[in-house]
């Protein structure tokens, strides 16, 4: 097990390096340092001297990939690519281009609001999806099943934007039950979180229910269930005791990989509800074209993805002793 994890992590290294190179190439090509400087220095009084000064101050006055003026290792290290991208490998995110903030510190503080909104959505969403799916599977073939399915197809055919706009309008503005948007620290955040969490759960429930229902139905068709049923166990018990346990693998595949991404927050949810999380951070960075931040977030995202894959594999062994990792 341990050696497997080590091997997986080693296998992840080239991927991480690949992501790093790809994003660096993309972003430096999109925006030359001159572009960046002009954009950041604003509309007025952007003289060539000011641009040069900005580039020098932020280390963008170096060549992109190879510095012919240096000798030895310096030809590679004294480049924008190495100076800006390589530190990411050891999780040194550096400073943002636009306002010189320390990105690592910012990620650490913004992570919490993101978690405050994504974890409840994740847990409540998963629980309600599993519950409804199980109900539908329990009473498969009845009108409940039929209408439940119809409802979930209908629900997943609606863009998430509609749910957000509608929810804010009805619950926040019209009924005045919740603050329309905003955030506060600690326990004070609860009243702000209810609305986005409810909307987040609703917008995901359609596809989730359909998926888990299929998973359960597949399990229900298996021999051991029939055996259990033949033993005279009630349908509910069969479903909860045996079905749920054995359906864990497909459920986990779907779920575990997304756990690390909870840190990452949700781009749209956070902007609409002014939650100061990482999703909001990313959108801000995209809109103000602060590529130091975007690059860091891309990189963080791929690391989280890889962590998720590894976690998925490990969780298999935990729920199903038959799965051995080597």
């Amino acid at each position: 097990m341990f050696s497997y994890i080590v091997r997986r992590i080693l296998y992840a290294v080239p991927i991480v390096v690949g992501v790093n190179c790809l994003t660096a190439a993309l972003f430096f090509y999109v925006n030359t340092p001159d572009d960046m400087a002009r954009k950041i220095l604003g509309e007025k009084n952007v003289t060539p001297a000011a641009i040069e000064n900005w580039k020098a101050g932020h280390g963008y006055n170096l060549p992109a990939f190879v510095n012919a003026k240096e000798s030895g290792l310096g030809t590679l290290t004294q480049t924008v690519f190495f100076q800006k991208s390589a530190p990411l490998l050891w999780l040194d995110f550096g400073r943002s281009d636009r306002n010189n903030i320390d990105i690592g510190g910012e990620i650490k503080t913004r992570m919490w609001p993101s978690l405050a909104i994504s974890v409840p959505i994740f847990i409540a969403g998963l629980a309600s999806e599993l519950f409804v799916a199980m109900m539908l599977a329990r009473w498969r073939g009845t009108l409940l099943d039929l209408w439940g399915l119809v409802a979930s197809v209908v629900m997943m055919s609606v863009s998430a934007l509609f749910y957000i706009i509608g929810g804010q309008y009805v619950l926040g503005k019209y009924l005045m039950l919740f603050p329309i948007s905003g955030y506060d620290a600690g326990v004070h955040s609860i009243k702000f979180l209810v609305l986005p969490v409810v909307i987040g759960v609703i917008s995901g429930v359609g596809s989730g229910v359909r998926f888990y229902r299929t998973v359960f139905l597949e399990e229900m068709g298996k021999d051991y269930i029939r055996t259990a049923r033949a033993k005279g166990l009630g349908e509910g018990r069969v479903l909860f005791k045996h079905g749920l346990k054995n359906a864990m693998i497909p459920v986990l595949t779907n779920v575990v990989v997304s756990i690390p991404f909870l840190f990452y927050g949700s781009l749209i949810m956070e902007t609409f509800f002014s939650v100061p999380g990482l999703g909001n951070f990313t959108i801000d960075a995209i809109q103000s074209q602060d590529f130091a931040i975007v690059r860091s977030m891309v990189y963080l995202g791929s690391i989280l993805y890889i962590v998720g894959l590894i976690l998925t594999d490990i969780s298999y062994t935990l729920v199903d002793p038959r799965v051995r990792l080597e």
């Binding site: 999109v30 977030m297 891309v298 995202g301 890889i306």
Partner: peptide, 22 residues
Amino acid sequence: QYVYTTLASIPGVLLIVAFMLL
């Protein structure tokens, strides 16, 4: 496999943003 794992591991939206700007 390396290529598609690498691409898959980049958060979709951000890749789209970079590409569309490009």
